[in-house]
Design a protein around this nucleic acid. Structure first.
Lengths: 359, 359
DNA sequence: TTGTATGCGTTATCAG
DNA sequence: CTGATAACGCATACAA
């Protein structure tokens, strides 16, 4: 506890500044490309070329350099690289909340794929706010990222397309075509249809729907899927069965309470995401309604924790990890001047224990 | 879908390179400090000084510069700053999994605090593997972060202390003193004691404990708290009641199954983290044991989702968000040459609905 | 208080 | 195939 103010790390450059270029800096631990060049008896340009594969170099020089690199433990400085070459080997990722249980998997997928290509992700959070997202993008651009991946968000398509005029952009959660931009889209309509269809196939006819915010494109699509399934089964759409939510647990809880209070009859409920399903389950529990005994419940997204809810939640699997991976791959392709072709797997409905056939 | 291969963003520097220093680059959108200086009729150093508050500048020049900055929309280039000044205004954060439901809150706290100081976090994942963590730190150092925050992890104290000789380091989850390093520690012992004490106060005498991995310092502490509470109540410690887990839901599930199979009697269970408690609850559910009717259950950490489990989980609140905030604040203080004093709030037990007095 | 000169570590241009 | 040389955009030591 009683540490004195050592002041070990003064802000700013450590001692040893202003030293000649060739001078050894063993003490400071910083091995530069120039030092490698000197040690290998070649010019800095040659070392740089070997590092980047920019041009063909004779075998002997190459081994000499490789040798020197290993001996000195040289590590290229991405900062200098960024300044001189214009690329930082880092990709900006605009997520909505760094601790989102939903996007978490996507971040992992991105991290994994970028990592194996030598790129680092730079995560920033937009908090579902177009203004903040725009600020995030400014930050990322000022940090000279080589490209930007945007996970859904509220930015306008136009803003995104504009951004793509400067930098490669990959965006998820929308359908959009623009130069320098690739959109990765999950079939939320089909997912909504699948979930509803499952309930229908179990004999349910009065299916409540807890929707996400209408501003969300995927929320609208999921609702559309619900309606399509109903229609296909020859059932009328009853607005009284639809309760608005906002993708949070609490909104799911409240939706069920309002549903119950409204006395509309239903034997099953479809929450437009798992988090709302959790809240819905709790509300039912509080009213002594048993899932699936009294009410069947399905969610959407298949969060990691949905395997461990009580009862385990039947839901539409959303391949977020793959989403992240594909987004990263698409970005890498954009960077390489290729045209991405990445595609997401089709939605699958996962049957667990929260639904039961109506007897 | 049918986008042609536009090749809009060739890897490497865009056109416009190698232009004279003073030359306007309006087209490319890059406004440099030098251009601001020219526009304001002062030298670059003056602009730099104003930007960094490095020295006192006359009022008229200052306004002229501020004006030019606003007019040209100048944004300093952190990359160049990093190269020239040796500081990148970015802080490396070694977490274990970018999608961890536990550390997520901490990342948010870090992001928030660093952001308001103009710093950006650079998140990397160590995956509970000392080797990977070491590699993470290498990556961060090569990217010239100004400091490193390590969230627990498996790195040795010595490795951390060594790292702190080059860079300021803040580490959570351990007690450790070293120059240039600040350790932020949560009282896991007290937390374990509190949880057990709650169960005891409800009349439970046979309390099973599902432990975390013994390699984890906090897992050991939580177990120690359990034992201390037992002892304080004059109860013997029964090893048969302790089941090893590894902090995952599934290990919690399996622990309960083994407990039940072993036929050891218990009326309550304390899982060393919420995730294991979720798994434990599911195992009990499968065996038709009701929580809290048949078995009382408590967790540790108070994850966001523990409010919405069925039943809502009684647990020890772990202030992860504050942990992240304090870690960031401590880092900022270290950077300023101050001695951090940040401290974490004491553990609190949150009573929800998963425990019941033994009748 | 302000300007000048220089260098941070790398890549890119251009001449050999 | 290789090596000078000049940027990249900024911060700092030093001079004025």
């Amino acid at each position: 506890m009683a540490r004195s103010s050592t002041n070990k790390h003064p802000v700013g450059k450590a001692a040893g500044r202003r030293r000649g270029a060739g001078e050894a800096a063993a003490a400071s631990g910083t091995v530069t490309l120039g030092m490698v060049a000197a040690a290998a008896g070649v010019s800095p340009s040659t070392v740089s070329r070997i590092l980047n594969g920019t041009a063909v170099v004779s075998e002997d020089k190459r081994t000499a350099v490789d040798d020197a690199i290993a001996r000195l433990g040289f590590v290229p400085n991405p900062v200098a690289r960024g300044l001189a070459g214009g690329r930082t080997l880092s990709i900006g990722v605009v997520t909505q909340a760094i601790d989102s249980p939903f996007y978490g998997g996507a971040l992992r997928g991105i991290e994994e794929q970028l990592g194996r290509a030598g790129y680092s992700p730079l995560f920033v959070s937009g908090h579902w706010n177009a203004t903040e997202e725009a600020r995030c993008i400014d930050t990322l651009r000022s940090r000279r990222v080589d490209g930007i991946i945007v996970l859904t968000g509220r930015l306008s398509d136009a803003a995104l397309a504009d951004c793509a005029r400067h930098l490669p952009v990959v965006v998820t959660g929308r359908k959009l075509t623009a130069p320098g931009l690739y959109a990765l889209h999950f079939d939320n309509f089909e997912g909504g249809r699948l979930a509803t269809h499952h309930l229908l196939s179990q004999g349910h006819r009065q299916i409540a729907f807890i929707s996400g915010e209408p501003r969300h494109p995927d929320a609208k699509e999921r609702l559309r899927g619900y309606r399509a399934a109903l229609e296909a089964a020859g059932l009328p759409f009853d607005p009284a069965l639809v309760m608005p939510g906002n993708y949070t647990e609490d909104s799911g809880r409240m939706a069920v309470e309002r549903l119950l209070d409204s006395r509309v009859a239903f034997t099953a409920a479809f929450a437009a995401n798992d988090q709302m399903a959790y809240g819905a389950a709790l509300a039912l529990h509080r009213r002594h309604l048993h899932v699936p005994g009294d009410i069947s419940l399905v969610g959407f997204d298949d969060l990691q924790s949905s395997v461990y809810t009580i009862p385990p939640l039947s839901t539409v699997h959303h391949p977020v990890f793959e989403l992240g991976q594909q987004a990263a791959i698409a970005m890498l392709q954009l960077l390489a001047g290729e045209t991405p072709t990445a595609q997401l797997p089709a939605p699958r409905f996962i049957v667990r224990e929260s639904t039961r056939a109506l007897s």
